[in-house]
Each structure stands twice: as C-alpha cells, then as structure tokens.
C-alpha cells in the first residue's frame, strides 16, 4: 500500500473550513431562532461538501451540496416557515439538570470516541483511491459499479424506504375530499354573490402578531373578525399589541376611538 501524502493545499482547506463547520454546528445548537439554526446547519453542510470533494469523492460532494443542502434543508426551512417563524426557544431550561448533564455527557462521549479514534488512527496509512478510480474509471463510474453489484440489494430495498416516505407524507398531509363535495369555480362564485358580502374576506388584522393561517384577523376594537376564521381549523389565540391603560395614556389615539375597555380576545368564540 503506497501512502498518499496529504498536500498543503488540503491542509489549508481543512484549517479554514474545519473551524467553519464547527462554528456552523455550534451556531445551530446555540441560536434561539430555528431559521438561524437551519442556516447555520447549511453552512456546516456546505463545508462538509467541500471536504468530500477534497477527499476524492466529487460525486458525493455534489450530491451533498445539491441534494442535502439544496433539497433537504430547504424542506426543513419550508416546514419551519409553515410552523411559523416566531418559534424561538426560550433560553430557560425547564428540565432540571438537563443542560449540565447533556454537556457533561457530551464531553464524556467526545472524549471517549474522539480520543479513541485519534489514538487508533494515529498512524493510519492512507491508501488513496487512485487504484479504484481515476484513469479510465471516473468516480461516478466506480460508484455505479459498486452500487449495482455489491450493493444491489440495498439499492433495491431503498425503494421501499422511498415509497414508505411518500405514502407517509400523503397519509399525514393530504386531506381527501369526499367524492362529490368538490364545487366548481362557477358554483363558488355564484354562491358568493348570493351572500351579503361579495368582496374578499379579511386577511390577518393589523394588530395580529402572527402570520399563521390559524390566526384570525382582528377588528379595530381587538375582537377577532369571524369572517377571517380559516375553515377546518379552530382559530388560534392572537397576541395583541399592548393596549393603553390608565389615565396617563388617555390622550392616545385609542382613547379617541372610545375602546378603552379591554376587549374580550375570544370574541365570544372561546372553544
């Protein structure tokens, strides 16, 4: 086995991207906002993608960047946006001792595994992949060859996994309509013009602080507008801007509207 010498260029790349990857990981764990976490993770993943390319795995590097970072992480972001962006964790740890224990165990685990690996691979010979790729066979060809011979069964079985995933997503996300309940555009618009209110329904109100479909619009007096309740979902309680109270604020615009009484938030529709 002829050892491959690791060049300076690779070392430079490692010492630049390694800390970046680490920072990304730490940033993901430490940032309170979930979207920031996702962006930090993307940072780490991109760094790892470069590492793959450097380590003679160009195909994997590309897949990492295109599929992992480009598709999977975007899916994460998509769901985060659906859930609502305002879901930052509070800094207070509610489980007693959880953080301390987690950090201690983390140090223990990293110590055991990291030190173990470091010791075991200190004189790891680097055979390099020149023998199996490069020259006539490119990286992709070599991978394909393995994929369809040695790993054929795994490859085939993976299809079961993908079918499961697709079916699972359909089951949990797709609301089927009963046959015959679907109304055409014509019926819909006719029905609307038969009501008292042919114009569009109100969007989320100006005082609302959430942009989820479950958050109803608020009327000027702070009550939720019933027109804006989404169908099929019980309306969510909405945080409101703090309302002025007390004599000192009597001169505010709210006072002019004469709605100083704290309005009931539920609008009489408390579930």
């Amino acid at each position: 086995m002829n050892d491959v010498v690791i060049g300076t260029g690779e070392a430079v790349v490692f010492w630049i991207l390694g800390p970046l990857a680490l920072a990304g990981a730490l940033g993901m764990v430490l940032s309170r906002n979930a979207v920031h976490s996702a962006l930090w993770l993307i940072n780490t993943m991109l760094a790892l993608g470069v590492f793959y390319v450097v380590q003679e795995a160009p195909f994997l590097g590309a897949v990492q960047i295109i599929v992992y970072t480009g598709a999977i992480m975007i899916l994460f972001l998509f769901v985060l946006m659906l859930v609502g962006r305002d879901t930052s964790d509070s800094v207070v740890e509610t489980l007693r001792g959880q953080r301390v224990a987690a950090i201690l165990l983390g140090i223990g685990f990293a110590g055991l595994v990291g030190a173990g690996i470091a010791r075991a691979t200190r004189d790891l010979p680097v055979a390099g992949l020149d023998a199996v790729q490069g020259g006539d066979t490119s990286n992709i060809e070599a991978i394909a060859q393995l994929l369809f011979t040695r790993y054929l069964l795994a490859f085939e079985v993976t299809s079961a996994l993908l079918i499961t995933a697709a079916v699972g997503a359909m089951v949990l996300a797709h609301i089927e309509r009963e046959p015959g309940t679907r109304r055409t555009q014509k019926e819909l618009s006719r029905a609307r013009f038969l009501t008292d209110r042919p114009q569009t329904l109100p969007g989320p109100g100006v005082h609302a602080r959430a942009n989820s479909v479950a958050a109803p619009a608020l009327l000027p007096d702070g009550r939720p507008a019933e027109d804006s309740f989404a169908t099929g979902i019980d309306p969510q309680e909405v945080d409101q801007m703090p309302r002025p109270t007390g004599r000192a604020q009597l001169g505010s615009p709210d006072a002019a509207l004469g709605t100083l009484d704290p309005a009931p938030l539920d609008g009489g529709r408390q579930p």
């Binding site: 499961t164 079916v167 699972g168 359909m170 089951v171 949990l172 996300a173 797709h174 609301i175 089927e176 099929g232 979902i233 019980d234």
Partner: peptide, 27 residues
C-alpha cells in the same frame, strides 16, 4: 383521515365514519 387536525369539526365528524386510512396495511 390522519391529516385532519385533532379536535376539528371534521375530525369529530369522521370519528364514526366507515372509512379508514387503509395505507396502514401496505405500511
């Protein structure tokens, strides 16, 4: 219907519906 949110009116309606999420069998 697993996608219908718990506790929504539609969910209560479907409680005794004869239909079933038949995907459980292939899964």
């Amino acid at each position: 219907a697993a996608a219908v949110p718990v506790g929504s009116p539609r969910d209560r309606e479907l409680m005794t519906a004869p239909r079933v999420q038949t995907e459980v069998y292939p899964l």
